[in-house]
Nucleic acid binder design. Sequence first.
DNA 1: TTGACGCTGTAACATATGTTACAAAATCAG
DNA 2: CTGATTTTGTAACATATGTTACAGCGTCAA
Lengths: 221, 221
Amino acid sequence: MEVLAKCPLFKGIDNEGISQLLNEIPYQIKKYEKGHMIAQSGEECRSLMIMLKGSVKGEMMDYSGKAIKIEDIEPPKPLAIAFLFGENNSCPVNIVANNSVEILHLPKKSVIELMQMSSHVLKNIMNIISSKTQFLSDKIRFLSFQTIRGKIAHYLLQLTGPVNGEMILTKSQEELANMFGVTRPSLGRALRDLHNENIIEAKGKSVKIINRELLVKQLKK
Amino acid sequence: MEVLAKCPLFKGIDNEGISQLLNEIPYQIKKYEKGHMIAQSGEECRSLMIMLKGSVKGEMMDYSGKAIKIEDIEPPKPLAIAFLFGENNSCPVNIVANNSVEILHLPKKSVIELMQMSSHVLKNIMNIISSKTQFLSDKIRFLSFQTIRGKIAHYLLQLTGPVNGEMILTKSQEELANMFGVTRPSLGRALRDLHNENIIEAKGKSVKIINRELLVKQLKK
DNA sequence: TTGACGCTGTAACATATGTTACAAAATCAG
DNA sequence: CTGATTTTGTAACATATGTTACAGCGTCAA
């Protein structure tokens, strides 16, 4: 259970403290296989889940059933914490196992008890939910403003920081396109255009920023 | 201060209880004129704000400086509560006074004290932040999936519930277009198209759903 | 090696939306 | 009522993105 010490929920508490807390409340550990849908969009959230092993993805459905991936979640991060409470505590995304997964389930009631028992947990949960909100806000900015070129620019600049070196994309064009909410050919075309305009050098999964200044300008469109 | 009793932050606490809580902690009430920017995107959030009078809007800037409105907030709702905590507690939106506004400011420290003093406040804050997260999730769904026709359909269906009557839009096309993140002529064209296809009957601010079934189908595109 | 498979590159075409501009209609202040 | 101002209707055109289809290319397992 050492992974729990790294979980942001228990930040600032030592292993012994965590054990003491968990002794006082009920919890469950469940295992899921790759592809299993752990929570379904619209379902009520009844427990806080903490990733122990493996990785899951959160994805949203549009009305026609097409999914777009929102994010990957890996240990020791908590899941669905922001949807436990609230007027309508239903999960807004599908959560699907990317591979073999182990998850700790804490019933909502236990979570409330934890917050009352430990001011550390209280502050940590506040931090986690707030960060989540900010993540979503960023996502909104990302989705609402930008062209494909802008999204690529945003993504590459964020990835590299201030350095200009070559980088190898770890995601396929298909995955990137999903993240951006665009189609694969459109993404490919945009990459090619940027390449032809000598703003980046893209070949396969390798991408290099040639003209950082012009790339930044893409953000404005 | 009776408005505070209606504030979700103090739900379940009577007037006397609220007075007692507020006696123990420092707070400020500030007034702002129409158009005043109360908080600026990127600024650190230092205090929780509760609307007492008037209304404000939250808007986001894109990189080119164009703003889109995210939401209006009116008394007795709290403001920026979800951005007080978190790793990077900077405000993601501009908050601008729609008219003459009075706002109660509670410093972050006071908020933490409040949560420790009152389990009601604790639960209320959890609920508020969670609802906020869900609001943003919905916004993401709204922004990431839909065409203009889809957004119109979503908006109209949400507005009317299951009834088919005529309704008068309270927002101008300009405002709606901003909400949707599209341009005014494009919105107008989409409305006209839907009208010509006998799905809705739109004339000025009056809109009537003619063929609900076909309108629902627009969501799928 | 070879064939299957998945990823990438790309093209032709369809469509949705933005841009700009202006006229018609509605609203409002005096 | 009247003129000014805001809102709406609309058109022509530019652009971005989606759709569909297929060819090339690497990789991996048999």
